[in-house]
Design a protein around this nucleic acid. Structure first.
Length: 822
DNA sequence: ATCTCCCGCCATATG
DNA sequence: CATATGGCGGGAGAT
């Protein structure tokens, strides 16, 4: 299509021109901005036009205008530039506007510098695109890239044409939590594994594979779409915004983030991410160009996320070579637990369909855009599902189990493991929020929640009315969205799910879990870990970013601490996973299931239902957000903020879906062994929440193993920190398999602890193979203490300065990976 | 050569 | 209809 592409020329031309003009320009000659060269224009007629039009300006003037913003450096450079080349003549180049200076990452920094991380309630900031483009002197298109990603994180929302509202990081905790949940529901972990396996397999026989694919693909064909989940709300009332459109960048961004949140190491390679993102829709495609495009987009997203310091670029070295990847450096998601409920769901399949719904504010609208229309045409059956789900849920809730804890107050209990186990259904604390308005109401209705965590399982149930599902869903026809209340935050998210998923969700009963707890051990440990490792180094050495930003008062705080310890416990993740490959191949039938599941994800954009109060108090909260929290205390207030306390209660239920699924998978693949990650980590204390079903999952695993469904071997570590489990199962299984898995992490790794797991492991799996592969590693890790690091991964620095990450567990990776930071 | 990823055309959505 | 949005992919800088 574009064959023409004039633009290039322009640039080129301009350069040329420049050169000509100024021969001296440096060798480098970075092309100065085209604009400047204006004289040059003429090359193609088109080009002229373009120039005229678009160009107009910004840059040019901007140069002068440019403000300082944060990066002085950059500006400075430019300025020089402007002045001109001749100056430079001498030596090096400095760079002109080199490409880097125009990078999206840098631009994003400038953009972010304009607004506070945690704007006070009072001051809402509005963003006018025209102003921004002008001030930052950038093309509008670039701003959209940034804003779209920010929207996916609910850091901004669109009010109207050209107008966005800045929310800052207040919603981040909830958003991440919701994303994590959805990611788990989507079985991303499994997908990742599957992809990895395929790679191996393929290596040599490219041909062979096709078979499987096909099969899988079939199922998938469906489609997809993205449904998007939208998150928390907060004001989006105004209009529509959601209306539709694809939002692919937004959706892609959310999915990308989900991958980090569900992965144990929290490291995601671009390749894998691209495949998964593509995969959703279509399975296999061999399409290369599509893959390339996806990668390009991921870089765009990654640049923005990097600016937000949520991720950092690293390299993963596998057998064959190193691949670009990103490591999550953002806050851990809370475990929150509780709430997990899901609520509604709808499918949204169709992409473009809906329209805006004008409804008024609140959830309902958002959730169901369709309201008016039918967006969801698809399943009427959903309703049924919903009901069944509800029932299940109730059961679950009621389930025996545990004790509960209060959430707020009892933090301490956290340590205890058991608590975790308990689970409560969800609950949300809407009340806290109290303030909120209608939204709340909605929530309430839909979901209920008890304020605090609610320990008792029952409680939740009670609210029958509330059952989320019931209410809402019914109304619409097809879908029912689920709402999740968030405990802490109080916010609920609505997620649209594919019907298929719904099922999964439903069941499960928690009752079992308990035993497994090996975790307990872990728990104790956990405390130690706290550390936050993240912060660490940092660096980035390379480039950019470092610059500081002056503004933002708060900002500083946040990140660093973040991790708070308590919270640290956080999560775990579940594991699930497994690999299916084998299975697939072998059993078709089964595969299908697998495949299907894969296929459908709900992916989506999360929408926020309520809004919570964030605004208000946020400030304080901000700290919390940062991480800490835990202790914090009981006051409710904090909870609001979001993050919060993890109460023990957290556990809750939750994510059942995963469970169910898991088992299947597991069954299928016996071989998988290694792969199977079974549980992810358990969490530390209570936590877990978030979506992860850890506890339960663990329970499942446990059960399965006993039963024999699972090969064994695998277990998962409890908390990330600790973890690392070695899993080793052998992989060998029949067919293929890869061999090793090990993850490596960095060698040094400071801390990694694996302890808990191991033991656990052994106990359960007697037979488990050990891992031939990395025995050492394991041991090492074993011993290591927690020293410090905590969070999930630990980093160490290599001689060369690069950091290495060691991570916790991985599920399966069969190979070793090394991660290097740049 | 590969990794990154900027640039901006042009299809769509919105007003 | 004029704009605002944003998908998309060529192809160039960075390594």
């Amino acid at each position: 299509r574009n064959v023409l592409k004039t633009p290039l020329k322009q640039a080129a031309t301009s350069q040329v021109v420049l050169t000509e003009r100024q021969p001296d320009c440096q060798p480098l000659t970075t092309p100065p901005k085209p604009k400047e060269t204006s004289p040059a224009e003429p090359w193609t007629p088109t080009s002229n036009l373009k120039m005229l039009i678009s160009a107009a300006s910004p840059e040019i003037r901007s140069r002068e205008q440019r403000k300082q913003l944060s990066n002085s450096s950059t500006e400075v450079l430019e300025a020089k530039h402007c002045l001109q080349e001749h100056l430079l003549g001498d030596e090096y180049e400095k760079s002109q506007p080199s490409r880097k200076e125009k990078s999206l990452g840098l631009l994003c920094h400038k953009f972010l510098a304009r607004y506070p991380d945690y704007p006070s309630a009072a001051q809402k900031s509005y963003i006018c695109l025209d102003e921004v483009t002008e001030e930052l002197h950038v093309e509008r298109r670039r701003i959209y890239d940034i804003v779209n990603v920010l929207e996916s994180l609910h850091m901004v929302s669109r009010l109207a044409r050209n107008r966005y509202v800045w929310h800052g990081r207040h919603n981040l905790p909830q958003t991440l939590q919701a994303l994590k949940k959805v990611g788990e529901e989507n079985k991303y972990i499994q997908q990742i594994q599957m992809i990895k396996k395929r790679e191996y397999e393929h290596e040599f026989d490219p041909d062979g594979e096709r078979n499987e694919e096909t099969a899988s693909s079939l199922g998938s064909s469906e489609q997809s779409e993205m449904s998007f989940v939208e998150l928390p709300g907060v004001e989006f009332r105004a209009a529509s915004v959601n209306g539709r459109k694809y939002k692919s960048l937004r959706v892609m961004s959310q999915k990308f983030v989900m991958l980090f949140l569900v992965s144990t190491p929290q490291i995601v390679s671009l390749e894998v991410a691209a495949k998964i993102l593509i995969g959703e829709d279509q399975l296999e495609d061999l399409d290369k160009s599509k893959f390339k495009t996806k990668i390009r987009r991921l870089y765009d997203i990654a640049n923005v996320l990097s600016s937000l310091k949520l991720i950092k670029k690293v390299h993963v070295t596998e057998e064959r070579g190193r691949k670009p990847a990103f490591k999550w450096t953002g806050p851990e998601v809370l475990p929150n637990i509780q709430d997990t409920k899901l609520e509604a769901t709808s499918t949204t399949c169709s992409p473009p369909v809906s329209e805006s719904v004008p409804s008024k504010e609140h959830c309902s609208k958002n959730l169901f855009p369709s309201k008016g229309k039918q967006n969801f045409t698809r399943h009427s059956s959903l309703i049924k599902l919903v009901k069944s789900i509800e029932n299940d849920r109730r059961k679950i809730q009621s389930a025996p189990t545990s004790p509960v804890k209060m959430s707020t107050s009892t933090y301490q209990s956290l340590p205890v493991f058991p608590s975790t186990i308990t689970q409560l259904p969800a609950i949300a604390k809407p009340q806290l929020e109290g303030q909120s308005k209608t939204a709340e109401e909605m929530q309430m209705k839909c979901a209920l929640s008890s304020p605090e965590a609610v320990p008792k399982p029952e409680a939740p149930q009670q609210p029958p009315p509330s059952q989320p599902l019931g209410a809402c869903p019914a109304s619409h026809g097809s879908v029912s969205p689920v709402i999740l209340p968030h405990p802490h935050s109080g916010v609920s998210y609505a997620i649209y799910l594919h019907p298929s998923q719904a099922h999964t969700v439903t069941t499960y009963s928690p009752g079992f879990m308990l035993q497994p707890l090996p975790c307990a051990n872990v728990t104790g440990i956990k405390s130690n870990n706290s550390k936050a490792l993240n912060k660490i180094t940092t660096e980035e050495g390379d480039n950019q970013i470092a610059t500081a930003e002056p503004t933002k008062p708060l900002a500083a705080e946040e990140r660093p601490e973040v991790k708070s310890e308590t919270s640290s416990q956080r999560c775990l993740k579940r594991s699930q996973a497994l690999q299916e490959n084998n299975l697939i191949k072998r059993h078709k039938g089964d595969e299908e299931s697998c495949g299907t599941s894969l296929t459908f994800f709900p992916s989506g954009y999360l929408i926020p239902l309520t809004h919570c109060t964030h605004g208000t108090k946020a400030d304080c909260s901000s700290k919390e957000k940062a991480g800490i929290c835990s202790l914090q205390h009981p006051t409710f207030s904090s909870p609001i903020t979001g993050v919060i306390p993890m109460t023990a209660s957290e556990l809750k239920t939750v994510n059942i879906p995963a469970f169910h699924i898991t088992p299947l998978n597991i069954m299928l693949s016996p071989n998988s062994i290694a792969a199977a990650p079974v549980l992810g980590n358990s969490c530390l204390s209570a936590s877990n929440a978030s979506s992860a079903p850890n506890p339960s999952s663990s329970a499942l695993n446990f059960m399965l193993q006993h039963i024999g469904l699972i090969p064994a071997g695998v277990q998962v570590p409890a908390n990330p920190v600790l973890q690392h489990v070695p899993v080793s199962s052998q992989a060998e299984s029949t067919s293929h398999s890869s061999g090793n898995t090990n993850v490596q992490e960095g060698k040094v790794g400071t801390n990694v602890l694996r302890l808990g797991r191991v033991n656990f492991f052994s106990s359960f799996q007697p037979s488990a193979p050990k891992d031939p592969q990395e025995p050492q590693a394991v041991t090492e890790s074993f011993f290591r203490t927690p020293g410090g690091p905590n969070s999930g991964s630990s980093l160490s620095t290599n001689s060369d300065g690069t950091e290495r990450i060691s991570q916790g567990t991985l599920y399966i990776p069969q190979r070793k990976l090394e991660v290097l930071e740049d």
